[in-house]
């Protein structure tokens, strides 16, 4: 377990900023309960500093996870957000998309969000913006990237893709072996 390097931090923060924008500050700057980012075996974890200090006593090969896993660095150095980061993204998300009840299961099976399943969308969402997907009862289901801006969605046909799928909570079942 070690702190992130400059490059790594940059990669992680740009990815996070894509979804939560300026709210990123709230993640880093928490005076009441300081938190930190740590790298352990390619994976980036976000944890309180107290827990970090405590978990130092666990040897590196035996440490499986601390706090919240945000995602992993691929071998080529690209950072990929995992579904486990959803809690943080959902808390600070700037742009949100709600899917109807009949669109929940298709989305949880890893499909994109199509116009027919679109329940609501944040008013001025631009194109290619990271969004968090919610069910109509405000339960976060995953995140993705918009294919069209809010204005453009109006004239699309029902089968057109609105949000490209990136991660959904169904991965906890589907990808349990590769996720951690």
């Amino acid at each position: 377990m070690r702190p992130l390097t400059e490059d790594e931090s940059k990669a992680v923060f740009t990815k996070l900023a894509n979804y939560i924008g300026k709210n990123l500050v709230h993640l880093i700057d928490r005076p009441d309960d300081p938190h930190c980012f740590r790298l352990q075996k390619d994976r980036v974890y976000y944890m309180s500093e107290a827990n970090m200090r405590m978990s130092i006593s666990v040897a590196r090969p035996n440490l499986v996870s601390v706090g919240t896993c945000l995602g992993k660095f691929s071998k080529s150095g690209v950072f990929k957000l995992h579904i486990t980061a959803l809690d943080i993204l959902a808390q600070y998300a700037k742009y949100k998309v709600w899917v109807k009840a009949n669109g929940e299961m298709p989305y949880l099976y890893g499909n994109h969000v199509v116009k027919a399943h679109l329940g609501r969308i944040t008013e001025d969402t631009p194109e290619h913006q990271g969004v968090v997907i919610y069910s109509m009862s405000d339960v976060p289901l995953g995140f993705g990237v918009t294919a069209r801006s809010t204005v453009d969605t109006r004239k699309l046909d029902p089968t057109a893709i609105i949000v490209f799928h990136q991660a959904d909570v169904g991965e906890y079942l589907r990808d349990e072996d590769t996720l951690f």
């Binding site: 944890m47 309180s48 827990n51 405590m54 978990s55 666990v58 035996n62 440490l63 499986v64 996870s65 601390v66 706090g67 919240t68 896993c69 486990t84 809690d87 909570v169 906890y172 349990e176 072996d177 996720l179 951690f180």
Partner: peptide, 19 residues
């Protein structure tokens, strides 16, 4: 692995998983 998956799914942020 399943332990970590459950810990994250349930939103437990104060858990250290070790082996």
């Amino acid at each position: 692995k399943s332990l970590t998956a459950n810990v994250h799914r349930m939103g437990c942020k104060n858990v250290v998983v070790c082996n």
